[in-house]
Amino acid sequence: MKNQALLLDADAIRRALMRIAHEIVERNHGVANMTLVGIRRRGVPLAHRIAANIGTIEGEVPPVGVLDIGLYRDDWEQRPFSNVDATSLAPNRINGQVVVLVDDVLFTGRTIRAAMDAVSDFGRPKAIQLAVLIDRGHRELPIRADYVGKNVPTARAERVYVKVQEVDGMDQAYLERDGKGEDA
């Protein structure tokens, strides 16, 4: 038996992504020279939704790039082999641009470290910012998010799951911990 606690339902996710869109526009004084970069997998649909929200606010939808950080991991030698998805980033969308990385959950920060390395291989951004739906703490690197849907204090062993319509058929974020008395 596993304990699950709901963190965000579909409406809460929708509101969080709209607020993040507002914050991005406000902080950058518009959307000029801005690119959103979704981190595979669930960061990608979230980036598209934030971009669409920015479009309704500003009348201009910023471009969205896609990044798979599999080739930049620092731990692949400790993991079973896993395939790498396609990355699509145009250098002219990186050089001199404000790049907003988008991911579902911020945890140790290692994914974001890898993503920043990857982005730098495509060009020299003016700035890199980070938007996440959930920040669950336990950073292992000096990395923080600029835009956060929800801060969630967690124990290290707990797991945070984000489900999105485009991948999972529903919008939901929840926390899972192993139930007491469960067989090991």
């Binding site: 798979d68 080739l71 930049y72 395939n83 790498v84 396609a86 990355t87 250098p91 291989d121 495509f122």
Partner: peptide, 23 residues
């Protein structure tokens, strides 16, 4: 097919300004 999918996904590296990944 898995090798073909992986190849397809790595193909863009040839077009990058910096063709040097740390992998």
């Amino acid at each position: 097919e898995e090798l073909l999918d992986l190849s397809e996904n790595l193909g863009e590296i040839v077009d990058r300004p910096i063709k040097k990944l740390p992998t």
